[in-house]
Nucleic acid binder design. Structure first.
Length: 425
RNA sequence: GUGGGAGUAGCUCAGUUGGAUAGAGCAUCAGGUUGUGGCCCUGAGGGUCGUGGGUUCAAGUCCCAUCUCCCACCCCA
């Protein structure tokens, strides 16, 4: 064998036949569901100006600090492979003046994202997300729609044991007030915090809340609650979102400590987890981002969205043993006995043009070997073009399931094949 | 960025305390008399044992480095 010196880069992988079908399936479910929710596809570049992510995601976040694939292009511009989808969609929304269209504007995307992380179960450097974004409305029913979409997606796939946690992280009016209160409360214990939280305390105190360290959790047990600091608007918004979700029949758990790592979230933040996935159990996450459009340089337009991790969806489907419907075409294999390959090629071509997936041998193999490979590729029928058949203008139709064979006149072949197909449908 | 585990044929793995041309099953390809798959039988191809150093008369086996994969931390999808 030839030893290839080059392999796929770390944290990336090839999707080979046999696996891509699973991808196509979960993507198709997402597309169908997006359509029924009224979201239209948008495709943005895979790379953007680095500046977009610095401003959009927030330069204090881990994504920006240590996970971006950033490089200078030949023109000296700083370019970054998109680490998430929302910022680019916002940019595109502004660049093409979609705010002049009837609001809300509802968009979905499917595609690869890039983060320079250490690979792990369910985590890759190139991974794929399907996401939906809605702009131009701050209505709580829209928040509920996004969560409902996410819920429905997992239901449709047969992942029924997912958990949806939801929280409100307030707005720029009330969140900083709470942040300061939290700082004041924690400061006396700062020596007992974990290393990460000591760092977070000054920069982003809310992140203390979802720290997994038990010591930190103990300290926070009696900490002030975000909901006690929320302004009336935020409180009402959060309540209504929950009411709408109840109407939609989407079961959610309020988790007051759910914060999420992207700076741009305001009000609603939610996360979907799937048990049994290992350490990376989060399969989807989203929230409202009422300041993001403005931060990126546009007018003050509210938005909300969610991103679903497709690798983790697939991982969950696999772990739970959820069957994936995959339809393989019914192949008709045209075999020859010795001579007649031109005829076989002609017949194969006619079959394909007539809408019947067809194959033939390409290695000059014996009839026996042709039968073998027909069987292996799962051919439903073999059409044998032997000397006798060629002489008499016939073909032998072999049903590979039953093993029965019948001689058919060439001019009747398509009629017979069509009948066979109709009978099975 | 940190820690633990693992790299032998396309795949799953054997390979004794270092010792002869590195094995098996599956897969691939070809045969098992003239034109018939699945089962069975026979045979063939395919490995510089992840890579690079070192120790040794001798390294798949021991040591170091490096790369990759897996798992976890961090973070997130």
């Amino acid at each position: 064998m030839i030893l290839l010196a080059i392999s796929a880069p770390r944290g990336t992988k090839d999707l080979l036949p046999g696996e891509v079908e699973r991808w196509q399936y979960i993507e198709q479910v997402a597309r169908d569901l997006s359509r029924s929710y009224g979201y239209q596809e948008i495709r943005t570049p895979i790379f953007e100006h680095t500046e977009l992510f610095l401003r959009g995601i927030g330069d204090a976040t881990d994504i920006v600090q240590k996970e971006m694939y950033t490089f200078k292009d030949r023109g000296g511009r700083s370019i970054t492979l998109r680490p998430e989808g929302t910022a680019a969609v916002v940019r595109s929304y502004l660049e093409h003046h979609l705010d002049t269209q009837p609001q809300p504007v509802k968009l979905y995307y499917i595609g690869p994202m890039f983060r320079y992380d250490r690979p792990q179960a369910g985590r890759y450097r190139q991974f794929h997300q399907v996401g939906i974004e809605a702009f131009g409305s701050n209505d709580p029913s829209l928040d509920a729609e996004i969560v409902s979409f996410t819920w429905d997606y997992f239901q449709k796939l047969g992942l029924t044991d997912i958990q949806v946690e939801i929280n409100s992280v307030g707005c720029p009016g009330c969140r900083p007030v709470y942040g300061r209160a939290l700082q004041r409360f924690v400061e006396p214990y700062s020596g007992s915090l974990c290393d990460f939280c000591r760092d977070r305390l000054a920069r982003n105190p809310l992140r203390l809340l979802d720290c997994k360290d038990t010591g930190c959790q103990e300290i926070l047990a009696d900490a002030p609650r975000l909901k006690d600091y929320m302004c009336d608007d935020c409180r009402m918004h959060f309540e209504k979102v929950q009411n709408y979700l109840q109407v939609a029949g989407v079961p959610v758990t309020v988790n007051e400590k759910l914060v999420r790592g992207l700076d741009y979230y305001t009000n609603t933040a939610f996360e979907v987890t799937c048990p049994g996935l290992g350490a990376q159990s989060s399969v989807a996450g989203g929230g409202r981002y009422n300041n993001l459009v403005e931060t990126v340089g546009g007018p003050s337009i509210p938005g909300i969205g969610v991103a679903i991790g497709l690798e983790r969806v697939l991982l969950a489907l696999e772990k739970k043993g959820v069957p994936i419907p995959i339809e393989a075409p019914e192949i008709i294999f045209v075999a020859t006995a010795g001579e007649g390959d031109f005829e076989a090629f002609r017949l194969m071509t006619e079959l394909r043009r007539g809408g019947f997936p067809a194959e033939k041998d390409f290695l000059g193999r014996s009839l026996k070997a042709q039968m073998k490979s027909a069987g292996r590729m799962g051919a439903r029928y073999v059409l044998l073009l032997g000397e006798e058949e060629l002489r008499e203008g016939k073909v032998t139709l072999r049903d590979m399931t039953s093993g029965t064979q019948t001689a058919i006149k060439r001019e009747e072949l398509f009629k017979v094949l069509a009948e066979l197909r109709n009978r099975r449908q």
